[in-house]
Amino acid sequence: MFVVECKCVVKGFAEGEPLISDTPINFLTMIDTENGEIKDPNHNLYGKTLKGKIFVFPNSVGSSVGAYMLYSLKKKGSGPLAIICSNRMDITTASGCAISNIPAVYLKDNNLLQVLRNSRTMTVDCEGEQILIYQN
């Protein structure tokens, strides 16, 4: 087990499988709020869903309305368990998570993303500002 340090933005606790995006996310154009699927055909996670996953991405980009997409996902039961931003926690993601009670953290050092890649499951402990990584 590894421990990765993080900074807390929205409090909470979540345990589950990660879904890792290497590229930034535009929540308005890339995510289907009905089922949490990544609907952008040019995205490398096209067709995968963030529903029930710990969604890891660098930061969100583009539309300011993206915050409402996180809220819609949560209302429809298609939201992520938690969010980890590997580059920086942007305002769209932070505000969307705050209104939707989705635990949200960002990595202190984005090189730590490599450690996250090696995990099948992880625990995001926002209060303790740490992510516990399990390899099997």
Binding site: I91, T92, S95
Partner: peptide, 11 residues
């Protein structure tokens, strides 16, 4: 201003 979101500007 920061690059605000719909919800942060509302707040």
């Amino acid at each position: 201003t920061n690059k605000e979101s719909a919800l942060s500007a509302l707040a």
